[in-house]
């Protein structure tokens, strides 16, 4: 692994986007960034700019109005990028999968790499998902060279 890759691996920046969630998972994502769970120890910092981000944390079922925004954000993120669907709603649409204004899970709109279950997804599970995403990310960086 080269110097650049090693450095990148230690600073996976996060972009959090709520596509129609009930806020439960959003709060848990925020709890990750705060003292008790503190994912900054993995180098993860929440960045609002998709061009700075490496890992997208998406919460909530995708509503019709958010669909294009989500696709737009995904396209703006530079590679190698990973998408983590946080919670049941983001993974499958869960209780909202049949609602009239909902497209379904995040994977109906953009490709998803890691699914974190739970309603709301617990911070421990989210950390687990993030660590899994990091190992996938490493693999992808190697593939890309």
């Amino acid at each position: 692994m080269g110097l650049v890759q090693g450095a990148r691996k230690r600073s996976p920046w996060i972009l959090h986007f709520d596509t129609g969630s009930c806020n439960g998972c959003d709060l848990e994502v925020w709890a990750l960034l705060t003292p008790r769970y503190d994912v900054e120890r993995f180098g993860a910092v929440n960045k609002a700019n998709p061009k700075h981000a490496d890992i997208l944390l998406i919460t909530g079922p995708v509503t019709r109005k958010c669909e294009d925004r989500l696709r737009n954000l995904y396209e703006q993120t530079s590679g190698p990028k990973l998408v983590v669907a946080c919670g049941d709603c983001a993974s499958t649409g869960a209780p909202f999968h049949n609602c009239y204004n909902v497209c379904g899970g995040v994977d109906k709109v953009i490709p998803v790499d890691v699914y974190v279950p739970g309603c709301a997804a617990r911070p421990e599970a989210l950390i687990d998902g993030l660590v899994l995403a990091l190992s996938l990310w490493e693999k992808r960086m190697e593939e890309e060279g």
Binding site: D18, T19, G20, S21, C22, N23, G24, C25, D26, L27, G60, P61, T63, K65, C66, R69, P95, F96, N98, C99, Y100, N101, V102, C119, A120
Partner: peptide, 29 residues
């Protein structure tokens, strides 16, 4: 951006709505 159609979903089964109405909002569930 967050409109899911809760009023329709909640009206479908009042017993299941005990579960679903918490999912309107996670901060004041």
């Amino acid at each position: 951006y967050n409109h899911r159609g809760m009023e329709h979903a909640l009206s479908l089964d009042y017993k299941k709505s005990q579960y679903l109405c918490e999912r309107v909002c996670g901060i004041c569930s």
